[in-house]
Design a protein around this nucleic acid. Structure first.
Lengths: 366, 366
DNA sequence: CTGTTAGCGCCTTCAA
DNA sequence: TTGAAGGCGCTAACAG
């Protein structure tokens, strides 16, 4: 078995209390001699503190529960990395829980975390979670007196704290950039519109259009589900509508990549024929054949900040609506074409790019 | 505060023991009436078991420590997903620790996990970890009586258990496939050759060459560091040697993607001019413009199996050398060209594909 | 059927 | 400068 305080006490002929004091570096009232003796035998016996016992008596585990939908999603693994890193620095740790986007599992995970005595929870809601379900989560955590932070996506009511990025601003940034680059016919592939982040991005997008005297048009909007396949499909739908498209703003990178695939398969070149901008800045963006211009969400930093707020006690279980909204950031790579001097009236381009698709394909498929 | 057994005992006028028995569904000797009463008040008072206390008394935490180098690496996040999923099913949980490939941090993490009472550890060694350092890890875990499993990479001595894939077979599969597709001049970009997995892949690779009457040639080998950038560099070196190359086998996908980038930038098309095969099967492989043919390592399954072995007790701290070696699997996508009828003697191709690179670039850069 | 006692390993008064 | 006592919340003998 592991060495215990008691064993050290016996070995040194001192009391458990004294040993505990010394081993915890207390502002001490222990003779230098005994202190030395204790330290030495602790070393010899290879003593290591039993943190389970410490947790029990102190009533805190210094552990953060990371309740997310899927760690293999690079969005969340970046978050996890930031959170874990910050925990490490403070001698905290993180328990990982995947919900696989199921609210029921989400609740199970929260219960388990509560039972394990988690000192805080970083919570990335499942996408199927409705406002009512979210409330079930928050109510539970509050009742358990566990401080928590929603990341990225959130329900705006009665939360303990939120750490997110300004999605409205992000949507605005993307659209504004496209417009400044001379694009006018801008389509977008949204996320599920029942999700607040998706709606906010759309708001920002439309705001930028308005400010530039452009109309938003439902024909230019397709709804996706934040994954590759739905990006493919949505781009296909957009194309099938027979409208002229200068650029596509996909509400996340996975969909952007899916859209690029469809475009490429349909004989369009990115960005020469149609530009694409994404959202997230996942690590593979820059590894793409056409590196993806995108709106960056600083996930790792969000994880770091979330952990810090929980560890420092800045967020307590009684906190309400403590918001930390980070700024998204435009990351320019190569998927958006610069079309200088193209005016609103211009419409002579596009479609000309629709060459014979099979020949085109072979030429460019490598 | 949270409701405790004591409170329920007081509320029902029964003893803590009785309450405990009932709440643990013991083959019980409690009157139906009291049982009912206990259940009800537990419900009312919103009782939840304090697992920290349970851990203390039972001497086990039902927690697996996941000590890996970097969770944001999709290789490990897939592993984590599998492990977490299996834990979830058994009411275990996982504590996540990143070492960022530093052995010192690795040891800190193991110590922390031991102090937290981890019931088992899934251990993905840092790549800088030498055999001696690895021994430091295993010695520590053994002394702490913690069962552990090395994943993927391992040192062959005195480990408690290993779960890995047959890298020799993987290297063989890759080379054999290329040869069967008519490639002869096969280069490879290895990982750091001090790592066992890398050496094994090389062994398998060379074995396939031999069996097919081909020579292995140092000129066709470049060493990388398992990341994108080193794949780029290594491909550059290979190209600079002025040798004829039919295909490149990169020892992981990140390097394969890096190599493809270099090839593309140097005016080579993949797979028309040079084929590329990778290793790992990370999720982005199929999202690439030229989906990457690769050797799949079943990471999620490895995580799942590792967790299961630890949870079931199949691996105990006294286990020695318990090996589980999974078979790697060829995943055919589009980065390898089929060159039917090309014989060993043939050498008329290649180089012809080296067109004017700038013009070529514009044609194909989209 | 139920309660008492003891103890997991540690920390924290409080008294000596 | 030190130690004894009590308790964190729960479980597991062992009595009744």
């Amino acid at each position: 078995m592991r060495t215990t305080l008691k064993q050290i006490a016996e070995a040194t002929g001192l009391s458990v209390t004294t040993v505990s004091q010394v081993l915890n570096d207390r502002p001490c009232r222990v003779s230098a001699e005994n202190r030395q003796k204790i330290l030495e035998t602790a070393q010899e016996l290879n003593y290591r503190k039993n943190l389970v016992a410490v947790s029990l008596v102190k009533g805190t585990t210094d552990t953060i529960g990371l309740a997310i939908s899927d760690i293999s999603n690079s969005f969340f693994s970046a978050l996890a990395k930031g959170a874990e890193d910050e925990c490490q620095k403070n001698n905290w740790n993180v328990i990982l829980c995947n919900s696989n986007d199921r609210h029921e599992q989400e609740m199970k995970n929260l219960r388990m975390l509560a039972d394990k005595g988690a000192s805080g929870v970083i919570f990335g809601m499942a996408s199927e979670t409705t406002e009512e379900m979210a409330r079930e989560c928050t109510d539970f955590l509050r009742r358990e007196h566990i401080p928590y932070l929603f990341v990225d996506r959130y329900v705006d009511t009665r939360t303990c704290g939120i750490i997110s990025v300004d999605h409205t601003e992000g949507g605005y940034l993307a659209a504004d950039y496209l417009i400044r680059k001379g694009h006018r016919k801008i389509a977008c592939i949204t996320g599920p519109l029942n999700l607040i982040d998706s709606r906010q991005r759309l708001d920002g997008f439309e705001k930028a259009l308005r400010e530039n005297g452009l109309q938003s048009d439902p024909l230019y909007v397709a709804e996706g589900r934040y994954n590759f396949e739905s990006g493919r499909e949505a781009a296909g739908k957009l194309l099938a509508r027979g409208i002229k498209i200068d650029a596509i703003f996909a509400f996340n990178d996975m969909m952007a990549i899916g859209a690029m695939r469809t475009l490429s398969e349909s004989g369009y070149r990115v960005p020469e024929d149609i530009s694409v901008i994404g959202y997230d800045d996942i690590f593979m963006d820059e590894l793409l054949e056409t590196p993806l211009t995108t709106i960056r969400q600083p996930m790792e930093e969000m994880g770091r900040i979330a952990a810090r707020q929980l560890i420092s006690g800045k967020i307590g279980y009684k906190s309400r609506q403590h918001k930390t909204i980070l700024k998204p950031e435009l990351v320019v790579r190569r998927s958006v074409l610069d079309r200088p001097g193209i005016s609103l009236a211009d419409s002579s381009l596009a479609d000309s790019s629709l060459t014979d698709s099979s020949a085109d394909f072979i030429l460019r498929k490598h």
